[in-house]
Structures are given as C-alpha cells and as structure tokens.
Design a protein around this nucleic acid. Structure first.
Lengths: 247, 247
DNA sequence: CTAAGCAATAATGTCGACATTATATATTAA
DNA sequence: TTAATATATAATGTCGACATTATTGCTTAG
C-alpha cells in the first residue's frame, strides 16, 4: 500500500510545486554528511538510512546517486554507498579552487555589477554587522545562555554566507555561482569536522570583520585588484587553520 | 528473474571493477542528450528509455538523477523527466564561464606545470597536427570517402580536446578539471545542435591551427598574459558562430 | 463550431520481493 | 593458536506490481 504521504504535507505547505521522496531526502542526507553526522568513509547502509529518513530504497538510491555527482558519496558496485573520504589533498584543492573561483566572481561582479548589486552588498553587510555585534558583546567567559550563543553563531554564519553570495552574485553567471556553491558546501564539511575538535575564538571574528570592511570598500570603489587580493586572503585564512589538523 | 547480465560481459572485459546498470546507462544517456538524439526539452518517457537501454526503471531513475545534477535533465514531480532546455542565455553563460575557467587552468598550469606537463603538451600538439593534416589534404569538393572524412573529423576533435586537456591539466586541481569537463560537455551539446544545421569549413580549421601554434608557444615560454588572452579568444570564437543561430 | 466537463488511457513514484554478491561466523586441520 | 575453508547471515541491485497523478480523447451543452 504505497501511499504518497508527502502530498498530505504538501497541501499544508505553500506552493503547487511538491517534492518527491528523493528530493525531500537529499537535503537531509546532504546536511547529515556536511555536518559530520555521517563520518567520512562511513558506510551508508540501506537499513539504517531507511529507518532514519522513513523511505524505501528507491528514493534513497536516487538521492545517493545525486550526491555521487556532487562527490559527497562514493559508490562501489555490490558494496553499497559510503561517505566520500576526506584527505588533506582534497582539502587543499577545495580551498584554493574556491579562492580562485570566488575571486573570479568578484572580478566579474566589479566589472558588470549594477546598482542593485551594490545595494545588496550594503544590505548584507549591514545585517552581518548587526549579527557580529551580538557575538562581540558577549564576555569571553560563557556566562550567557549557551543555546542562545549557538543560535547567534549560526545566524552569523548564515549572514556571512549571504554577504559573500551577494558580492559574487553580481557576476551574473549561474554556472559560476553554482560551482561556488558546490565548493562552499564541500569546504563546510571540513570546517564542521574541525569545529568538532576546536573552538572559535574572538580573534578570528575581529580579523574577519576588518577584512569585510576592506572588502566592501574595494567592491563599492570597483577596485578589482584590491578586491581580488582581499577575497583570496579571506578564503585561504581558514585553510591555514585546517591544514595541520588531524581529522 | 532478475539476472545480472552485466556480470557476464564484465568477465570478458578487463578490470575487476564492474559497473551496475545505472553506471552503464548513464554514459549512453548522456551521449544521447549531448549528441542531440534526445532534443532539448524533449520528454523522456520511461517506456521508451526502457526499450532503448534494456533496463528497468530503477537504474534509469538513478542515471537520470545524476544527470539532473549535471543539469542535462530536468525533473518535475509526477510529470517525469525532460531534457534540459536550451537558451541563448545559457549558451552565453556556458561559453563565457568556460573561457574564464580554462584561462584559470592555464594560468595555474603555467605557474605550476612541470616538465611532464610541457611534454604532454608537445605530444598532444604533435598528434593534433597529424590529424589536422589529414583534413587539410582533402580537396574541398567531397571526392573522398565520406565515412572516412567523418572519422577523421571525429579523431581531430578527440585530439583537439586531448590537447586542451593536457594544457589545463598542469593546474593540478581535480576540481578545476572537473568543472572544465562539465562545461565542455554542456558546450558540446550546443555545438552538436549547430552542426545539425551547418557545416564546418576549412577556414575555421586554419584559424584554429594558427591559434594553437601561438598557444603552444606561449605555454612553453610560460607567458601567462599571452596564453590567457589566446585561450579566451580561442574558446569564445565558436560562440560567435553559435550565438546568432536558431536552434 | 467552440468550450467545458468527464471518462479512459497512460505515465509516474514508491514499495516489497528476489537473485546475486559480499561479509561475518563457525569449523576444522596444521 | 592460527590459517584456511565452509557455512550462515546480511546487504546490494534489479524488477514487477500498484496506487496516485497527469494527459488525452470524447461527449455534450452553449
């Protein structure tokens, strides 16, 4: 008795565009891999996945197939699926390629961006700053509500990403933006693995803030050379932290 | 009675690594889309696909799922799969992004490439030139065997691609090379659609040859600025032909 | 003649079942 | 005890079946 339960939920949700099981699963599965819930090189057994996501094998295999292309999952015939392994080689490639790609986006955006692009940067920067202020005001000794702090960090990261997205989006290329997104996701996996062992300190936030200010200035002034140097440095700095860690 | 016929074939083939049905289908399906056998925006009905590739729906859906990520196929819930539509907007984005990416590869390769990289360029260039000579020697009036000529063109295209692959491969980045490959494939679709209406003439081949000579010189001399200009022009030239066509 | 509503047909998305293959366990010999 | 083999268990990959949904064709009213 296969009943499309998703339809029932879909009615309560907004648009006429529903999602099949595979589409529903793929986001959760991706998040579980990027967040580190499923460890690198871990075997993804169907029985467990079925239990976790409450779907059959067919949608699961479709979702996993998509993650193969995104290189988050590896498949070996008759031996099932495993989480894509990590390596320092890949880590280096991801961060460096990301720096190149994002610099390319920035270059194009500076050449092609219109007033709406500038406005979106100013807006995103404003939101990011407000979010950063929340984090700064907290004393180093964790007297504040920990859960609240966690949410603040999450909000900051969302807005941080939104800022860079806005800056890059002026390039006007869907393909560039997509490559950029893919690399960001892969980088975030290593980042999350690092966060399981280490703690962010205030120094990095402060440095980040200053770099952003300089970047915004360069962007609005359409200073391509400066902006490219700044963005590359900005994206490679976390790599310096990650590259010497044993995951 | 599901019998894994592929295993039987696999024994006759080489390695111990076999492929499941989905992996076998995906290459053919991709080729059928890139070649234009399945037209843009065409509906991909399961019954037809089953007949063509002689597999059930499960492997097909897996293969199609992968092509969704590569943006060669579009899915709409309860309405099945269709070939990704084409547009002049996408055409422009593909070719321009490709030019940027390949220029980036070339830049990095010039900075990082070793002797093996240089050697691979010389080797690929040699093969390409020999293949080009076959095409040049033929008189314009098609007195020669048409089938032979078709094969010669195909060989030239393979070697042409191999040459550019070799030049880019010196960048040392798997991610860059993969983005490059993806863009090449998407561009080849538009190219193939164009070829269904038009014919290649000798002039383009001659121009191509000269550009290659200049490129090889710039690469071996590690002249980054020249090489970047040359490769961008080289990749955008076909766009000039395609951009004004009605597919 | 056109438009709208309805029935019939076809196609999609999902699951369970089954054959094949891999992995874990037990047994036995050295 | 260890290594090798045989058995048992578990997991994978594929297909057919079925409910749901979309599309087509037909009838009928305006």
């Amino acid at each position: 008795m296969p009943v499309n339960l998703n339809k029932i939920d879909a009615v309560t949700s907004s648009g006429p565009e529903t999602a099949n099981f595979a589409e529903q699963v793929i986001d959760q599965l991706k998040q579980d891999i990027l967040s580190g819930y499923f460890a690198p090189s871990e075997k993804l057994k169907m029985t467990r996945l079925k239990q976790r996501y409450q779907v059959g094998v067919s949608p699961l295999r479709e979702a996993l197939s998509q993650l193969i292309v995104e290189q988050l999952v590896v498949v070996e015939n008759q031996r099932g699926f495993t989480v894509h392994p990590i390596s320092h080689e890949e880590l280096k490639d991801i961060y460096h390629t990301r720096a190149h790609i994002e610099a390319l986006c920035i270059s194009q955006a500076i050449q092609l961006g219109d007033d709406a692009w500038e406005a979106s940067i100013v807006a995103a920067d404003h939101q990011l700053k407000k979010s950063a202020r929340l984090l700064e005001q907290v004393p180093d000794n964790g007297t504040q509500n920990e859960e609240q702090q966690r949410l603040n960090i999450q909000l900051w990261e969302t807005r941080h990403q939104a800022f860079h997205h806005a800056a890059c989006n002026g390039c006007g290329s869907k393909h560039l933006m997509q490559v950029r997104k893919s690399l960001y996701e892969k980088a975030s996996r290593y980042r999350n693995l690092w966060l399981k062992q280490h703690m962010l300190n205030h120094a990095v936030f402060d440095a980040n803030q200053k770099e952003h200010e300089a970047l915004v200035t360069a962007l609005l002034a359409r200073n391509e050379t400066d902006a490219v140097i700044l963005i590359k440095h900005h994206l490679l700095e976390p790599y310096m932290l990650l590259k010497d860690t044993n995951f």
